[in-house]
Amino acid sequence: MSKKAVIVVDMLNDFVTGCLKCERSSRIIAPLKKLIETARARGVPVIYSNDAHYKGMDKELEHWGDHAIAGTAGAEVIEELKPEPGDYIVPKRRYSGFFQTDLQLILTELGVDTLIITGLHCHMCVRHTTADAFQWGYKIIVPSDATDAFTEEDYQMGMKYLVDVYGADIKNVDEILESL
Score class of each variant (00 low, 15 high):
S25W: 03
T38F: 06
P85L: 07
I176H: 09
G74I: 00
G56M: 09
Y88G: 08
W64N: 04
A133F: 09
D58A: 07
E153N: 06
R24N: 15
Y95V: 02
V16Y: 12
A73F: 06
Y138E: 08
E178R: 13
L32I: 11
H123L: 03
V163I: 15
K3W: 01
E84W: 06
V165N: 10
V90K: 08
V173T: 15
L61Y: 01
S179D: 15
S144A: 14
E76V: 05
R127F: 11
A131Y: 13
I106H: 08
E80Y: 10
G86Q: 07
I28T: 08
A133Y: 11
V77E: 03
S179P: 00
F99R: 11
P45T: 09
P85F: 09
I7P: 07
D145K: 01
R40A: 04
E178K: 14
E175H: 04
A146I: 10
P83H: 11
K59R: 10
S25Y: 06
C22M: 11
Y166E: 02
I170G: 05
P45G: 10
A30F: 02
K21G: 02
V163K: 13
I117L: 04
D174S: 12
D102F: 05
E153V: 11
D113W: 04
E109P: 00
I47M: 06
K3R: 15
W64Q: 03
I7F: 07
T38E: 15
S96Q: 10
V8H: 05
C122L: 08
T151D: 08
A75R: 02
L120E: 01
G167K: 10
F99V: 05
I89E: 12
H121T: 14
Y161K: 09
K171F: 12
A133I: 03
Y95K: 13
H63A: 12
D66K: 01
E60M: 14
G65C: 08
L35C: 04
T129V: 03
F99W: 13
V8C: 07
T17I: 14
R93A: 06
I89L: 10
F15S: 05
E62S: 13
E109H: 13
I117W: 02
P45S: 10
T101Q: 07
H53N: 12
H123V: 04
R27P: 00
Y161P: 00
A146Y: 12
I29T: 06
R40F: 01
I28Q: 07
G43L: 06
G65P: 01
I141Y: 02
F150N: 10
V46A: 13
H63M: 13
E76M: 14
D14I: 00
H63V: 15
L107C: 06
A73K: 14
I117H: 03
D132L: 10
L35M: 05
A73I: 13
K171M: 15
A73R: 12
I29C: 10
A39L: 05
T72V: 08
T101S: 09
I140H: 07
D10F: 07
G86K: 09
Y54Q: 09
